[in-house]
Amino acid sequence: MRLDLRHLNKSYDANRVIDDMTVDFGELRSLALIGPSGGGKSTLLRIIAGLVAPDSGDIALNGEQLRFNEPALRAHRRQLGVVFQAYNLFPHLSALTNITLPLEKVHGLAPAAAAELARETLRRFALADHAHKKPAELSGGQKQRVAIARAIAIKPRLLLFDEPTSALDPEMTAEVLDVIEELKNEGRDFLLVTHEMGFARHVADRVAFLAQGRIIEHAPAEELFANPQSQECRDFLARILRH
């Protein structure tokens, strides 16, 4: 993917969450966004996902300028798979239906084809036995894997993960990180907001450090963690890696 941001701004009331953000990441497969809470990571992910409109500025994904009107945004969202921190499965639908519903209603698949594809995806993540369970009957790790299955079933151009393991205990975190790593090895493009520094370093081609609504620095993963350039990033990593 190619991601190019120009003078991006977003405020909530008086709070400037994205502050004149300009960066061209160039060509890359996987990008991790790290940084302190409130630094603008999730907002940036939501802008890229077409869920939040910036107050001003431009954003281009793979050379295509995002247009922030509803029909264009809907077309944009269809091509992306978003995985949220709180899984966000529909609680009234089974795991299987959570996956088939967008396939049928948004992507126009016939019910049989959608069910087949959903089963195949669930099988892949070892969730076949849980196809007919409601989210309330699944563990956190299982829920998040169903959510990932839902996101990849539509064959997205880009996957967006918004702190996908923040609500999980360590064992389930590993379960979900394994899945993400597998997707990376398959060559899928993704953008990941995470607090798992080890994982970011391991799985992302490039890591960007965000604070106070700006991208302070970005570099290939090894480089950024081994040799952070900015004082903010050094402080942040020192704080977070101390334990």
Binding site: G50, L51, R77, R78, V82, N88, P102, V106, R150
Partner: peptide
């Protein structure tokens, strides 16, 4: 979050 998910799915 349910509404946001529905939107994100298109």
């Amino acid at each position: 979050s349910q509404l946001e998910t529905a939107r994100s799915l298109g």
